[in-house]
Design a binder for these strands. Structure first.
Length: 207
DNA sequence: ACAAGGATCCTCT
DNA sequence: GAGGATCCTTGTT
């Protein structure tokens, strides 16, 4: 069952947390999302923070579409646009667990095996064979790259986002990275800590 | 038209 | 832990 567009229309932190456990499918490859980061409309780390540009325009559009960003000239990083149009925000998919199509994933990842295969946003983009031309593709519709309902995680980790030293201190420190507790398929686990009970309650109330 | 730098990854040591 | 790869986007001349 595919996720509906309304899934992505909600608050970006809610979507980032709710995406844990959901599936990404592209052809024979099926991945379970294990780690995400939220980038919000009023966030100095977000690519849309300095207003609409050619690159960030998709984030100002409707939710549930892909924003694939080329980083360091090499890495294709998958984001999913969130919140209603005009509120420019997105969730970065940082890591996944393979569910199907492992042979193809390994081929696309240079024959590697184990967590190194999929723990990092550039690795996820490579495993799904994405590039910037996928920007704008709706993940809630049939065809190409799709987002499907998966198994919800039992417990969740949180921590600061990775690689945003350029952001303002408050944004740099915000615990807007989410991961599945106990999963091997999570990057940079040292800076993550268990979600507090208050955070869990708040998150469930927001659903 | 130009220069700077990046939401990373890999290969060393 | 350090450094290079690699090229697009952006803001500035």
């Amino acid at each position: 069952m595919r996720l509906r567009q309304s899934f992505f229309a909600r608050d970006t932190l809610v979507v980032a947390r709710a995406l844990l456990g959901q599936e990404l499918r592209h052809g024979p490859v099926r991945l379970r999302i294990t780690e995400t980061e939220a980038y919000t409309a009023d966030d100095s780390a977000c690519h849309a923070h300095r207003g609409r540009t050619k690159r960030s325009a998709v984030m100002f559009g409707p939710p549930g579409r892909a924003y694939v960003y080329l980083c360091y000239g090499i890495h294709q990083m998958l984001n999913i646009v969130t919140e209603p149009a005009e509120r420019a925000a997105a969730v970065l998919v940082r890591a996944c667990e393979p569910l199907a199509g492992l042979d193809l994933v390994r081929e696309r990842r240079g024959g590697k095996a184990g967590p190194v295969l999929l723990t990092g946003p550039g690795k996820v983009g490579a495993a799904l064979a994405l590039d910037t031309s996928w920007t704008g593709h709706p993940l809630y519709a049939a065809g190409g790259l799709e987002a499907h309902v998966g198994d919800a995680p039992a417990a969740i980790l949180r921590g600061p986002r990775v690689g945003i030293d350029y952001a303002e201190p408050a944004d740099r420190d915000a615990p807007w990275r989410f991961a599945i507790a106990g999963s091997r398929w999570v990057s940079q686990r040292a800076s993550l800590r268990p979600e507090t009970e208050a955070e869990t309650r708040a998150a469930q109330a927001a659903l």
